[in-house]
Amino acid sequence: MLARDIMTSPVITIEPSASIGEAADLMLNHHISGLPVVLANGTLVGMITEGDFLRRGELGTEQKRSRWLEFFLSPGKAADEYVRAHGRKIEEIMSDNVVCTRPDATLDEVVTQMIDRNIKRLPVILDNRLAGIVCRSDLLRALAAQLPIDTVARNDDALQDAIITELRRPSWSGNWTIQVGVKSGVATLSGVIFDERERQAARVAAENVAGVKAVTDELTWVDPMSGMTMPPPGAAREL
């Protein structure tokens, strides 16, 4: 799946000469937290988000420092903070260093950029023009579309094979000490784990197999250093 498959288009945008009041109204009326700032020809020049309105003089939330720290603050930095706290135009407070992506970028690339840059949205650029935007909500919709809705009818043997296959794929289950049994669609996990975190991972692996009705945890945790054991909870968790 690529960025163009999930991006929102057309995009609600604003011009750099617009007022911050116009931007606030657009965000509130459309229930969005950020706006690409574009020129009349569609060229992206910045981004305005809710975070840009946090330090505002009208709210009394502008940056405050002690006189001692103010002494070490450069005049340029102080001037920049003043503009961001009191500027009336979008171009005065917007972020102009915008991280963008391509329509053919993979979702893995999109998510990596969001995590590495700690951002919530990525404008999608095609031929130097804004073609769309990918937000975290777009990724959530893509996830919801991929989640199974109907249970798949499988016999117990097929479910057991599918769970074993799923357990053997990830690196954390390389000890091969987890046994699987299935009866009437209820999966039972037994055997030994050497890290308590493997318990939840094993449950998730079994629950992700379509057709499993419930998972019973009979895994015993063994501390590889001391040999201390923790008995399994044993209760079935229904899906």
Score class of each variant (00 low, 15 high):
residue 11 V to N: 06
residue 117 R to L: 00
residue 227 G to D: 07
residue 38 V to C: 12
residue 100 C to D: 11
residue 61 T to E: 13
residue 133 I to C: 02
residue 112 T to Y: 11
residue 61 T to N: 13
residue 23 A to I: 03
residue 143 L to H: 01
residue 94 M to E: 09
residue 223 D to K: 02
residue 44 L to Q: 05
residue 30 H to L: 04
residue 84 R to Q: 11
residue 112 T to F: 11
residue 5 D to H: 13
residue 4 R to Y: 10
residue 162 A to P: 03
residue 73 L to P: 00
residue 140 L to C: 02
residue 30 H to V: 10
residue 42 G to Q: 00
residue 81 E to A: 15
residue 158 A to F: 01
residue 100 C to W: 08
residue 39 L to F: 06
residue 37 V to L: 04
residue 121 R to D: 02
residue 218 E to T: 08
residue 98 V to K: 07
residue 4 R to S: 12
residue 214 A to F: 09
residue 56 R to Y: 08
residue 209 V to P: 08
residue 229 T to H: 01
residue 232 P to H: 03
residue 221 W to F: 15
residue 119 I to P: 09
residue 153 A to T: 13
residue 16 P to L: 05
residue 60 G to H: 08
residue 177 T to S: 14
residue 238 E to W: 15
residue 236 A to T: 12
residue 72 F to S: 06
residue 62 E to I: 07
residue 142 A to N: 06
residue 98 V to S: 11
residue 65 R to W: 15
residue 88 R to Q: 15
residue 182 V to A: 00
residue 239 L to P: 00
residue 173 S to H: 14
residue 51 G to I: 02
residue 127 D to I: 06
residue 199 R to W: 02
residue 6 I to H: 04
residue 50 E to I: 03
residue 211 G to F: 10
residue 99 V to I: 15
residue 206 A to V: 07
residue 103 P to F: 01
residue 212 V to N: 05
residue 47 M to S: 01
residue 54 L to T: 10
residue 132 G to N: 03
residue 155 N to D: 15
residue 190 S to C: 06
residue 83 V to P: 00
residue 135 C to W: 05
residue 38 V to R: 05
residue 74 S to H: 13
residue 210 A to W: 08
residue 1 M to N: 04
residue 21 G to W: 03
residue 31 H to A: 13
residue 207 E to P: 02
residue 128 N to S: 14
residue 52 D to K: 09
residue 67 R to L: 14
residue 6 I to K: 07
residue 16 P to G: 02
residue 92 E to G: 10
residue 234 G to P: 00
residue 70 E to A: 10
residue 114 M to L: 01
residue 187 A to Q: 10
residue 217 D to W: 06
residue 1 M to G: 15
residue 132 G to T: 04
residue 223 D to T: 01
residue 11 V to A: 04
residue 81 E to H: 12
residue 94 M to I: 05
residue 55 R to D: 11
residue 34 G to D: 08
residue 96 D to V: 10
residue 100 C to V: 15
residue 69 L to K: 12
residue 160 Q to T: 14
residue 198 E to R: 11
residue 173 S to I: 05
residue 103 P to M: 05
residue 22 E to D: 11
residue 6 I to E: 04
residue 102 R to A: 12
residue 140 L to S: 09
residue 158 A to N: 11
residue 141 R to P: 00
residue 88 R to A: 09
residue 96 D to F: 09
residue 107 L to D: 09
residue 167 L to P: 02
residue 3 A to D: 04
residue 204 V to S: 12
residue 51 G to R: 14
residue 141 R to K: 13
residue 67 R to W: 08
residue 125 I to Y: 03
residue 146 Q to G: 12
